[in-house]
């Protein structure tokens, strides 16, 4: 499972991609993914709107994740 990070999420984590190895510890839903990321990177938990896309589609927290899913974390950006 590959997670691409954009905007401030990339800055917080310090890289543009995270890999979750198959099996143990791999989040099974978007909600669980958020919790896993937030416990590893508490600053992510402070973002009030953080869009999550799975396979290029914006998704809600209930969505069940599958092993090959490509996930993107897309926080809002403000610059102009």
């Amino acid at each position: 499972m590959e997670i691409l990070l954009f905007g401030i999420a990339k800055d917080i984590v310090g890289k543009s991609k995270i890999q979750f190895a198959a099996g143990e510890g791999q989040p099974t839903s978007v909600k669980e993914l958020r919790q896993t990321l937030e416990s590893a990177y508490p600053d992510l938990g402070r973002l009030s709107s953080m869009a999550v896309a799975v396979n290029s589609e914006y998704v809600r927290d209930e969505l069940i994740l599958k092993p090959g899913d490509e996930i993107a974390i897309i926080p809002p950006v403000s610059g102009g």
Binding site: S48, S49, P75, P76
Partner: peptide, 15 residues
Amino acid sequence: CLYPKMPKASEVPNC
């Protein structure tokens, strides 16, 4: 629909 709530001042930096 993408970002329902406005972020707080402390969350996201500007240019």
